Computed example of a mutant assay.
Amino acid sequence: MFKQLQQDLEADHHIHFNNIKLLEEALTQANYINEHPGYTGNDYQRLEFLGDAVMQQSTAVYLFKRFPNWDEGRLTELRISMVQTRAFAALSRELHLDRYVQLGRGEELSGARNRDSLLEDLWEAFIGALFLDQGQDTVMRFLEDIMFVKIDEGFYDQFIDYKSKLQEYLQRDGSVKITYTKLDEQPVSNNEQIFTVQVAVDSEPLATGTGKSTKDAEKMAARKAYQSLMND
C-alpha cells in the first residue's frame, strides 16, 4: 500500500522516501495498532508533533522572505490562514493521504477518514516524516510546489473572515456604519446567478464584489476593500 503512495509521490512531486517506514508511521493511527497486537510500528503522534513545528517555521520563513514590505500583522494573518485545520486537510486530500491512513475499525466506521482534524494530523505527520528522511531543504521545495504556490491562487482567502477584518479595521477609532448593498443580479445558467454587492462605510463606497450568492459577493467585496486599505 505504501509503495503505491511512494510511487505517486515520485511521479507527482519527485519525492522518494529513503526510509519508507517513516511514511508508514506517519499514516498509522494509534487505534489501528491497538487492534493489531503483532504490529511493530509506531503511530503518527510523535511525527505530528515534529511536523507541526516544521510547518510553523517553514511557513514563517517563506512569508518573511517573500513579502519584505509586509508588517508583522499582515504576515501573521496570512500565516494563520495557511497553517490551520481546513488548509492542512485540503493538502492531505490533494496527496490522497486519506486513502492510505491505517485506522482502527471504530474510527473507520465513524468516518474519521474524511474528518478534517484527522487529515490535519496526517499532513503534519507526513511533513515530520519528510523532514527526518530528507531534511529542511527538501521540505521547503515540496511546500513551495504544493502549498506556497496556492498563495497567488487566492486559495487561503477562503479561510479568512474578511467581513470581520474589515469591520475591525474601520472601527478601530470608533463606530462607523458599514453597509452591503446588492447592485445587480444576473442569470448565468438555468440554476445559477451572479450577484454584485457594494460595501460602503458611512455611505462612502469602498469596493464591489461578485459571487454566486449575496453572501459570497459580500465576502468578495469585503476582501477587496480590506486588501485595498491595507495596501494604501
Rank of each mutant, 00 (worst) to 15 (best):
E185C: 13
T85Q: 10
M82Y: 06
S58G: 12
L22F: 10
R93M: 05
V199P: 00
N31H: 08
D52P: 00
I80R: 09
G128Q: 11
I194N: 11
E108N: 12
D137W: 09
A221C: 04
R141Y: 02
S110H: 10
G211F: 10
L229S: 00
F67K: 00
S228A: 05
G135N: 13
I146D: 06
N231M: 01
Q171T: 12
F67I: 10
R141K: 13
T59I: 15
D232Y: 02
L119E: 04
F64L: 08
H13N: 14
D12W: 11
N231I: 03
L78R: 14
I80H: 02
N231S: 08
E108Y: 14
H96A: 08
I127K: 09
Q136D: 12
L5N: 01
T76K: 15
F88C: 02
L109D: 09
H16N: 08
M140T: 12
N42Y: 08
T59M: 09
V83I: 14
N190D: 11
W70L: 01
S203R: 12
L170A: 07
V139D: 01
F17P: 06
K182V: 12
Y169P: 00
H13T: 04
L22H: 07
W70C: 03
R172P: 06
T179R: 06
A221M: 03
I178M: 13
L95H: 02
I178K: 06
Q158Y: 04
S92R: 00
D161G: 08
E168W: 07
A26G: 12
W123M: 14
Q29W: 09
L50C: 02
S58M: 12
F142T: 04
N31I: 07
L183N: 08
S58A: 15
K224R: 15
M1H: 02
L166Q: 00
E120Q: 15
E25H: 11
D71T: 05
R223A: 01
Q6D: 00
Y162L: 09
R223T: 04
E218M: 14
V197P: 00
T28E: 04
N42D: 10
F148M: 02
G209F: 09
L9M: 09
K224L: 15
S58Q: 12
Y226R: 08
Q171S: 10
A222M: 05
E185Y: 05
L50M: 10
Q6R: 05
E120W: 07
R223Y: 05
N191R: 09
L143M: 12
V149N: 09
K219H: 06
L5Q: 05
F131V: 11
A60V: 07
